[in-house]
Design a protein around this nucleic acid. Structure first.
Lengths: 157, 157
DNA sequence: CCAAGAACTCAAGCTCACTTGAAGTACAGT
DNA sequence: ACTGTACTTCAAGTGAGCTTGAGTTCTTGG
C-alpha cells in the first residue's frame, strides 16, 4: 500500500484535508487504511500524507458502497486494479460488470416486491396462503453465525 | 402482547413448529418476542404457544425487512394495526403507502446509480471531477454515534 | 418410569463499519 | 518559547439482528 514511487512534483495532503474534501471522517480514513482500501506515506513525524488520487479512491469506495458491496469486496476490486495508476477503460468495464449485475438483481427484487405490494393494496388481503408478498422468496435462509446486516440494499445481503 | 382473548377452538403451535413453518430460527422468534414483534402465551410448563396468525405476522415482518424497514419500524407498523384481528383493507393501505414510497426511493436511487454506471462504462473515466458516479448524492451526512448502516458521508464541511 | 428431545432463561458473542476516548506527539503561528 | 490545533496509537464501544452456549426444565414415546 505504500505510495512511494510517484511523479515527484505532487504535493501531499494531510488526513484532515482528505477528510474535509472527501466528507469522510479521519477515523474512517484510518480504518480504511487498516482494511487496505487506501494507502498513505508518513512524514518524519509519523503523520499520514495522501496523494490527491486517494480522493478518487475514496470516491470509488463510496460509490461501491452505494452499489451494495462490503468493504472486503471493495478491497478485492481495488486490488484487482493496477497499482496506482488511473484505471483503464477495460479495468473499469470489468469491475462495472459485477456492479451492474448486483444492481440489476437488487432492483429487480425491489420492483417485484413493489408490484406485489400494489397487488395487495387492491386485494386488501394479508392472507397467508394467497398473498404474493408473503409467499415470494421464502426460505432465503442465509446461513452462518453472526450478524445479518440486511436484506435491504446493503452490503452482505 | 398476550394473545389471550381468542376464538377458543384454535389450536396452538409450539416454537419449533412455528420455526419450521416460517423458516425463522427459534432463537430469532424469541428475539422477535423480546422486541415486541410477536406475542405468545405459555403452557403450564412455561413453553411458548403461538396462534396460527403468528405465522402471518412473521411473514409480514419478513416482507417488511425486504422492503428495508428496521425491526423497530416494523414494530411500530404492527402496533398501529388493530390488536389481533386481520387487518382491514384500509389498515393495509395505510401501511403499504409507507412501504411503497420507501421502495420507490430506493429503486430510484439504484436505477440512477446503474445509469451512471452505464455512462461510465462508455466514458471509461473514473475522473473525480467529471464522473457522475462519484459526484452524485454527496454529503448525505447521517449523524450520530454508533454504526452507520448505509452510506455514510460524514459532513466535513 | 425413564430417556430423549424440545423448550426454557440468561449472558455473552458475532459481523460490519465505524466512532469515541485517553494519552501522548507534531507542527504552525505568534 | 509557547500555545493551540492537528495528528498519532490502541483499546473499547456502538447498533442491528441475531446466534451460541450453559445449565435447567417440560413433554412425549416406549
Amino acid at each position: 500500500m505504500a505510495e512511494e514511487n510517484v511523479p515527484s512534483k505532487d504535493h501531499w495532503l494531510s488526513i484532515g484535508e482528505i477528510a474535509h474534501r472527501s466528507g469522510v471522517a479521519a477515523s474512517a480514513l484510518r480504518f480504511y487504511e487498516d482494511q487496505g482500501l487506501i494507502g498513505s506515506r508518513r512524514t518524519a513525524g509519523n503523520q499520514r500524507q495522501y496523494q490527491r488520487s486517494t480522493l478518487r479512491r475514496i470516491a470509488f469506495v463510496q460509490a461501491a458502497q452505494r452499489v451494495g458491496l462490503a468493504l472486503a469486496e471493495i478491497r478485492e476490486a481495488l486490488d484487482s486494479l493496477p497499482d496506482d495508476r488511473t484505471p483503464t477503460r477495460s479495468d473499469w468495464s470489468r469491475l462495472s460488470k459485477t456492479w451492474r449485475s448486483r444492481l440489476d438483481e437488487r432492483i429487480t427484487e425491489l420492483e417485484r416486491l413493489r408490484d406485489d405490494l400494489d397487488g395487495c393494496i387492491g386485494c386488501g388481503c394479508l392472507s397467508l396462503q394467497r398473498c404474493n408478498l408473503y409467499n415470494k422468496s421464502d426460505r432465503l435462509a442465509e446461513r452462518g453465525p453472526g450478524a445479518r446486516i440486511l436484506n435491504v440494499g446493503i452490503p452482505g445481503e
